[in-house]
């Protein structure tokens, strides 16, 4: 099982005022709030924690098929360069890429799986599915009736978990099987 979340930093700074009264308190645990406010770049820390929570939510949501909005149920910790997100008795492992444009977090149930996750980035457009599929030799990216994405092997029809996230200008597709572009 895997998940991912991407935050377009420019869009986030235009559309969210995390300094708004009550904002941090509704989304982040006391410990996370302290880390945000004492960090050298609070805004980046806000969106880093946020993307960790969202990536972990995607795993929990897919396993339980339950939708909810309660980001404080996911508590984030840093573990070296990676992250750990606690949800009830579950631990989700995360790894984030931070650059000037976006923060992208991938998540999995085991830390070993984290290293196997393949990511491809696209421009966030309406035809990303056909963009992906026209570049993909071995797999077709499909969404089921619930909107849950899978990569389907063109030869044997086997389905592999995929996770899609998009925000602003950016879109990321992750799975354990996406081939490299030069395969």
């Amino acid at each position: 099982m895997l998940g991912n979340d991407i935050v377009d930093l420019q869009k986030a700074s235009l559309e969210s005022n995390w300094r708004r009264k009550g904002y941090l308190n509704k989304l982040f645990t006391a410990d996370e709030q302290e880390q945000i406010l004492t960090s050298t770049n609070p805004e980046i820390t806000v969106w880093l924690f946020w993307s960790m929570k969202e990536a972990a939510y995607k795993i929990v949501n897919r396993e339980t098929e339950e939708r909810f909005y309660n980001p404080k149920r996911f508590s984030c910790k840093f573990n070296g360069n990676n992250g750990l997100v606690n949800f009830e008795d579950k631990i989700v492992h995360t790894k984030s890429l931070i650059n000037l444009d976006f923060i992208h977090t991938i998540a999995s149930i085991t830390s070993q799986d984290l290293g196997s996750i393949q990511t491809t980035y696209f421009e966030n457009t309406h035809n990303y599915l056909s963009d992906f599929n026209s570049n993909s030799k071995h797999y077709v990216l499909e969404k089921d009736i619930y909107g849950v994405p899978n990569l389907v092997d063109k030869i044997n029809g086997k389905k592999h978990f995929a996770s899609i996230s998009h925000h602003g200008k950016y879109l990321a597709i992750v799975s354990f099987v996406i081939e490299k572009k030069n395969d």
């Binding site: 708004r20 009550g22 904002y23 509704k26 989304l27 946020w50 909810f68 909005y69 309660n70 149920r73």
Partner: peptide, 29 residues
């Protein structure tokens, strides 16, 4: 955007003079 749902929760609190606890926010989809 899910990062703006919290703004709606905060705006609802202000508009109606209520406090929305986490268990209630949990359902506000």
């Amino acid at each position: 955007n899910s990062a703006n749902l919290v703004d709606i929760v905060l705006d609802v609190e202000e508009k109606f003079g209520i406090t929305i606890d986490d268990a209630s926010m949990n359902k506000m989809l």
